[in-house]
Design a protein around this nucleic acid. Structure first.
Lengths: 110, 110
DNA sequence: CGGAATCCGGAAAGATACTG
DNA sequence: CAGTATCTTTCCGGATTCCG
């Protein structure tokens, strides 16, 4: 099915906003409006779409509370929990990257 | 600049084909045609584009040999090497995912 | 001949308004 | 509050063309 294993990973978390969403969900369950507030640049449409795909891939759970106003909560599934090491190492690299604690950029600096 | 560190990571390796390209480069320098052969589904255009962006972000080095026929070789820079743990953990998860060694999908299974 | 740039049609993503 | 529908804009795939 996949030429290389990493393609499977990309299939699951490769969406434009998926890793960021999962990153926020590692801190606990979040409802839609919370995620929207945590990721202001995302549009409602893309948020819904990416959440749907994550749900279909079984990495997050979606719980709907039948009430008015509506309440929908998303959280990591067991499979999603298994992605923690991936998320963590990505967050970690990003931190060091921002803080300049990584090797210099490999080019001539232009 | 970034709301969350992981956004920096996504900025660098978040492109559609970047992680896969980097994955192949972890096995050693590759010329354009080799990468094209390793990733048949990618178009020449996207390959060039993603390689340019990776180069601009300083994670890969581009060496042009002035000869006929042309020869261009790409390899990880020092900064790119620092991404190895990220790539590795992603490959590792993908392997276990494919082999069914991960928790069941979190949904009702349908 | 390998590598990259260009042009165009289609698909995906952004913005916004609307519904239950 | 969540999610949908519509429209616009950007991005991607494929073919062709260009250059050394």
């Amino acid at each position: 099915m996949y030429e290389y294993p990493v393609e499977a990973t990309l299939e699951v978390i490769g969406g434009k906003w998926k890793t960021l969403i999962l990153c926020h969900l590692t801190y606990g369950p979040k409802r839609t409006s919370e995620l929207k507030k945590l990721i202001p640049e995302i549009t409602q449409k893309m948020l819904t779409q990416q959440l749907r795909e994550l749900e279909e891939d079984g990495v997050i759970l979606r719980t709907v509370y039948n009430q008015v106003p509506p309440k929908v909560v998303y959280e990591l599934s067991e499979l999603g929990e298994s992605l923690r090491p991936v998320i963590d190492v990505m967050c970690d690299w990003g931190e060091r990257y921002i803080q300049g604690k990584l090797p210099e950029r490999g080019d001539s600096g232009l």
